[in-house]
Design a protein around this nucleic acid. Structure first.
Lengths: 117, 117
DNA sequence: TGAACATATGAAGGAGTATTCATATGTCAA
DNA sequence: TTGACATATGAATACTCCTTCATATGTTCA
């Protein structure tokens, strides 16, 4: 029996451990949530989110705001789309992006409050 | 003049770009915010945060809840401490951790709402 | 004091990520 | 229809991160 197994078995407060374990969200939900926060874990993408909080923008203008290439922005936008952080509408050859819902700006705002305090 | 420079200069909606750029948070704040979200971008740390949302726990019990070694948990806790996601009190050789403030569970809750909808 | 223990930390390997470059797709305008 | 353009995407490289293993620190108890 290794030390690791001991540590998992000989908990200090077994009741608390079991209670907390029982209330944990399902694994796929936590994976999804982690992937969502991962999208907000990049200064470039945060700039994009902050920019879109002010209204929709096309890819080119978004690239200008955050100061990276349109290619890089497009790669980021695909990820943000996949995690439903942003959605977009096509208008001819342009694509206008906006935040998906109010949860996103709420996350941004709460996070900013936290780092500012 | 390269294509990238063109794309940065020839924006579609110059006024929008300048307005949005002017309202962007300072760089060090966005870096800090990105690092904060990074802390929430791991299923293991999210489990830890969710566990601590139910009250304080010692390192060993936290390791038991999330199912990783005490060493791994300790490494994570150090990062979470540095970003002020958690704080702790020492009691003899034990260390009891809790969430730093209500922003953290708010972020967790808002994020969970988003992925569940 | 010395052994056992809870926690902390340094180093390292393997996995994942961001950006760039090159190119593809689809749209507009001449 | 052809050329220019906005956006999208695949591949590759450089970079960062998570976990494990080994070890250190500090505390309790015999």
């Amino acid at each position: 029996m290794t030390k690791v197994e001991l540590c998992e078995v000989e908990v200090v407060d077994r009741e608390a451990v079991e209670r907390v374990q029982a209330s944990q969200a399902p694994e796929e939900e936590l994976d999804h949530l982690a992937a969502t926060f991962q999208m907000l874990a990049s200064p470039t993408r945060l700039r994009m989110v902050e920019a879109l909080a002010g209204g929709e923008l096309c890819v080119c203008d978004l690239a200008a705001v955050v100061g990276v290439s349109a290619s890089a922005v497009s790669h980021h936008l695909r990820q943000l789309r996949q995690m439903r952080i942003v959605r977009f509408r096509k208008a001819g050859r342009m694509a206008y992006y906006r935040l998906d819902d109010e949860h996103i700006s709420e996350l941004f705002g709460t996070g900013l409050e936290h780092v500012r305090e």
